[in-house]
Design a protein around this nucleic acid. Sequence first.
DNA 1: TCACTAAGAGGTTCTTAGCTT
DNA 2: AAGCTAAGAACCTCTTAGTGA
Lengths: 119, 119
Amino acid sequence: MLAHRLKQARLRAGLSQEKLGKLAGIDPMSASARMNQYERGKHSPDYQLMCRVAEILNMPVSWFYTADDEQARLQEIFYHLDANTRRPLLTQAESLIAANPPSNSSASNGNTAQPTTAN
Amino acid sequence: MLAHRLKQARLRAGLSQEKLGKLAGIDPMSASARMNQYERGKHSPDYQLMCRVAEILNMPVSWFYTADDEQARLQEIFYHLDANTRRPLLTQAESLIAANPPSNSSASNGNTAQPTTAN
DNA sequence: TCACTAAGAGGTTCTTAGCTT
DNA sequence: AAGCTAAGAACCTCTTAGTGA
């Protein structure tokens, strides 16, 4: 996932792998190799570096960790809106979830606070 | 960030560190130590493991990589909405961003596709 | 039972030094 | 110029074994 989003955002910004790496503060000697390794999914960058990359590419960090395209798109939009414009979006989101039953918030495991028989 | 969100979501689900680790497929012998190291920010888990943890805690993975609380909240809500209910939210988002000028999408670096003088 | 930790074993990334397109 | 890679050095995580709340 991260690899794909990285390439997507870098190309949109019109930067080379090496240039992006340098801007993100990577040692210029290894910027090219490292960014290539990340973008091809050979190695994975730590979160701190991704925060700097995200800033440079003007995207929310979490976007790089998002698989679903619709979720990614919403994050991107929200990130680029100013505080006042964000408000109505959040408000609508809150009312939609209130009107729709998420059935149970901590689902998928049969945890109902039983005293844990054995484990 | 990840450390904090992990604790937040785990406590909400009413699971112990060890139990969550086991459910996520970690070797039962080291589940406790590892989850504790992640939650205290001592070490950081790889993305693949976080995907499994996210599923168990019924949250979108990207949520764990989100610093901003409003962004996190929006992601959480969107994730719990069904496809049909997501639609109007995305539509409003798209129209808000269309009405508001993000000034320039790939900002913050002076890149305007010049032939790159030197580097 | 749950949270937490030190420290060595084990596994990953980073750097270097290239080659290819 | 840009993309890409092997392989060892350097670094980080995982496991074990155990303490404290």
